[in-house]
Nucleic acid binder design. Structure first.
Lengths: 310, 310
DNA sequence: TAAAAATACTCCATAGGTATTTTAT
DNA sequence: ATAAAATACCTATGGAGTATTTTTA
């Protein structure tokens, strides 16, 4: 009869690709793990890993099985949390993933607000691209993620926190700096600088500038918006920045000018996603609201300031 | 550490509401089951059942937990089937649920076709209303269900098999019998006879006759279309019949007349649904196609016949 | 020939069984 | 008073450890 122990060991084995290290990870001896894997293979009617001299590599059956196994283990973890979740909300640590184009601007405010309003709340933060975040959310490594909505992948529930409009960042001496409001159609492929592949901000910018063929873009593998902005300041090109980065006030380089787009301004929606069926839904909905409060008043202040300076 | 054994026992306990009978169902002694339940309660941090003199009743925590437990057990069952599913398609029995307004007309043809084309295929059929079917599908009691699409509940994948248009069945001496095509607006609440609550055919008929207030309908608790048609034949009223019932040729009572609705004819879509993530997706998609083949040629024949007789 | 996984063998934790007591209606 | 669940106690299965052998790159 199939057991969770087998699935836990199998998950460790898939992670490490190595019986010995998997055993260490699972906190048991190598033969103990080997036995359970063998038993699991017997239950499922075929080999899950190919034993090589260098370790273990998942078979086709193993690849299908590990996905299901991880989903089951995540569901079990959710079930285990049922009791705790009935306690006061936001009193247990949340392992939170955040996309790179939001993390550095959101987190300071969020952590401030959180420690003020919910002193017992605790965040463990991880920053990476959406694809990895959704994977880790699905397999239970993360409890919730802050991403651009809607999400197409996975079986998640979501709550929107705020709309984040795009602005055009150009060198102050560029002709773009005079043209206000900016038009997406006026942007050329050979001047546009974007984050590397996989970053949702890149895809969003491309959908704003739908005229541009992505293959004609310069590619230089930047993974942080700050880097791209340095290049823009140095006159290497122009880029799209999300309002949240502007609002956070990190852009006071005189070599940079920010231009609003013509109405309707393009924007993305940032929100929280979590595993459907997570017992902590209340926690995550509360978190989405707190993120809203962390961003929206500040954004309005900023809008005021810009009107004054205009 | 939480184990599947605990969940299996808990599921049995929730089903029987009785430690002793649950133990029998699970194939262990009562104390063994009691111990595991107690351990599970400890893991989840609260009582799952309220012990009464007469047995055990789920607590609030228990109600939430049993849903998750059943989902986990279903996922485990799916995982266990992974290996088998890699065998030839349609070689393992399918536990199939079918709604009552389809079952008697579909099954004879389906079983015929199946035994001709896939001699090794085997169906275990259960007939009941959609709500029960979806529940049993979700908890793994059924492998697939044949229902009217779209389904609003549950985490299911679906494949449409055929469109099933509605006709009006009236007593041959009714004024409706002359009016052709029929108009939904001409139907009165006090002449319309429908299946009892919960049958999707009832809801579908009501949405065709959207003008009618359901509270004004005669209610007599019929659970089979054949019964309703008997009443219509006896002059008690009129009803909507799905084309599939007509095509099956069960309606040759001279006291009954079938009237087509004005174009566009109202219809419902019948298809197959199964648990998303079931490893037997290929089986069920094949089944949906076979159901299509079982119904559609026959329906076309019937359409021919009707044109000739008109 | 090294590293990795499987086998051999022993031990002990624990799940489960029977008998009995406690509890609730 | 009676049915149901919990407790006590014993047994045995099987999961896990150490030591060792076999495999494969």
């Amino acid at each position: 009869m199939l057991s969770l122990k087998q699935l836990r060991y199998f998950s460790a084995l898939a992670e490490t690709g190595h019986f010995g290290r998997a055993a260490t990870l699972a906190g048991v001896s190598q033969p103990a793990l080997s036995m359970q894997i063998r038993e699991l293979e017997h239950e499922l009617g075929g080999p899950l890993v190919e034993r090589t001299g260098a370790g273990a590599r998942l078979t086709e059956l193993g690849t299908e099985a590990i996905e299901r196994a991880r989903a089951i283990l995540a569901a079990v973890r959710d079930l285990e949390e049922l009791g705790d979740a009935r306690a006061a909300p936001l009193t247990r640590p949340i392992r939170l993933g955040v996309i790179p184009s939001v993390a550095p601007y959101l987190l300071p405010r969020l952590l401030d607000l959180l420690s003020a309003d919910h002193p017992r709340a605790q965040l463990v933060v991880r920053e990476t691209i959406t694809e990895e975040l959704t994977e880790e959310l699905a397999d239970g490594t993360l409890d919730a993620i802050v991403v651009s909505l809607p999400l197409d992948s996975g079986d998640f529930e979501t709550a929107a926190s705020f709309d984040d409009s795009f602005l055009l960042a150009v060198p102050s001496d560029s002709p773009h700096a005079d043209r206000s409001p900016a038009l997406a159609e006026a942007i050329d492929a050979d001047e546009l600088l974007l984050l590397s592949d996989g970053h949702c901000l890149r895809d969003q910018a491309l959908s704003v500038c739908h005229r541009i063929d992505p293959r004609r873009l310069k590619s230089f593998g930047a993974t942080s918006l700050a880097t791209v902005l340095q290049l823009v300041a140095a006159g290497q090109g122009i880029t799209l920045v999300p309002d949240i980065a502007v609002t956070a006030g990190v852009l006071n380089d005189p070599r940079l000018t920010l231009v609003h787009f013509a109405r309707p301004e393009p924007y993305r929606t940032i929100g929280v996603a979590w595993r459907r069926n997570s017992p902590r839904t209340a926690d995550f909905e509360a978190l989405a609201k707190i993120i809203h409060r962390a961003i929206v008043p500040a954004a309005e202040d900023n809008a005021e300031t810009e009107k004054e300076s205009a």
